[in-house]
């Protein structure tokens, strides 16, 4: 297990560097006649993510965590700062270099009902990235897709090929989204609240799956969540984001055990707690 990684890493270990990134949205105020920028959605954010770790980005709604993910994925442009993925300068990517960047970094979206194209069969959905990057012939693609789907827990894979998203449950759809994310064998996956729309028993299965992927394929995860408990179970390090700013970064246990920022303290205090058969031993041990 990776222990306290607060200390600065040697650059070789860092897969993603976000430095002083700022993003503000233009708001049109008709009463003023012009357009001007409001307080930034992402305000001077700096994070470093090490290769092979799961890094949690925790924050409430409107804290800017999803915007930051979109900036890293180059779905939107940032106003200032720099993002480096390995040796690529994300802000300057274009054409072929952008396309090869897209092979290395993938995303698992939040809403399994909205993130799959309703007109694509499951096979087409998972194979789409392969088609885009012209990987393999039909036969090879079939094999790669099957592997990705089996890895994601959709077995037997052939049963799902000709189905369509509307015929699957939320958990199955999220597995399809995961299969699509891993089919290109990316080095980095951004998971944006991948379980927030799922029932508890299904989301635990999705967590297990992400855990397996991380372990077996040495994938680095940026895990975005509003749920500190989920981050605690999945991530080695977390950053707490509030109103566009990173207010605290560090090893997960350290932040949860000894929070410094007032917002982090409030967040921990607000977590629902109940004594159940699972933590009774621990509770009594504490007392």
């Amino acid at each position: 297990m990776i222990s306290d990684q607060d200390r600065i890493q040697s650059p070789a270990d860092i897969i993603l560097r976000v430095e002083n990134v700022v993003k503000a949205y233009e708001m049109r105020h008709f009463s003023f006649g012009g357009s001007h920028k409001t307080s930034p959605a992402v305000d001077n954010v700096t994070i470093r993510i090490n290769r092979g770790e799961a890094f949690g980005l925790v924050g409430g709604s409107g804290s800017g965590k999803t915007t930051l993910a979109r900036l890293i994925l180059k779905l939107e442009r940032f106003d200032a700062g720099a993002i480096h993925f390995e040796d690529l300068n994300v802000g300057k990517l274009k054409g072929p270099s952008l396309k090869s960047f897209r092979r290395k970094i993938q995303m698992i979206p939040q809403d399994p009902y909205q993130s799959l194209n309703p007109y694509f069969s499951i096979f087409e959905t998972v194979a789409e990235p392969l088609v885009i990057h012209r990987i393999g012939d039909d036969k090879a693609r079939r094999r790669i897709v099957e592997n990705a789907m089996v890895l994601s827990g959709l077995t037997p894979a052939a049963d799902y090929y000709d189905r369509y998203p509307h015929q699957l449950s939320g958990g199955q759809r999220q597995r399809v989204a995961i299969a699509r994310a891993v089919v290109l064998e990316p080095q980095f996956i951004i998971a944006d609240e991948p379980t927030s729309m799922l029932d508890a028993s299904i989301s635990i299965a999705v967590f297990k799956l992400l855990h397996t992927i991380k372990r077996r394929h040495n994938v680095t995860f940026l895990f975005i969540t509003h749920d500190l408990a989920a981050a605690r179970h999945f991530c080695e390090r977390i950053a707490v984001m509030h109103r566009g700013k990173i207010i605290e970064t560090g090893a997960t246990e350290k932040i949860i055990g000894n929070p410094q920022a007032p917002y982090t303290k409030a967040l921990i205090a607000a977590q629902p707690r109940f004594v159940s058969f699972r933590n009774i031993g621990k509770e009594s041990a504490k007392k």
Partner: peptide
Amino acid sequence: VALLSSHLSLDSTYDFQADIENITE
């Protein structure tokens, strides 16, 4: 039992490694 076990909280621990089998739906 399954429902309570799948609840992630700040106090309990969940061992992903121990129970890696996937729940098929």
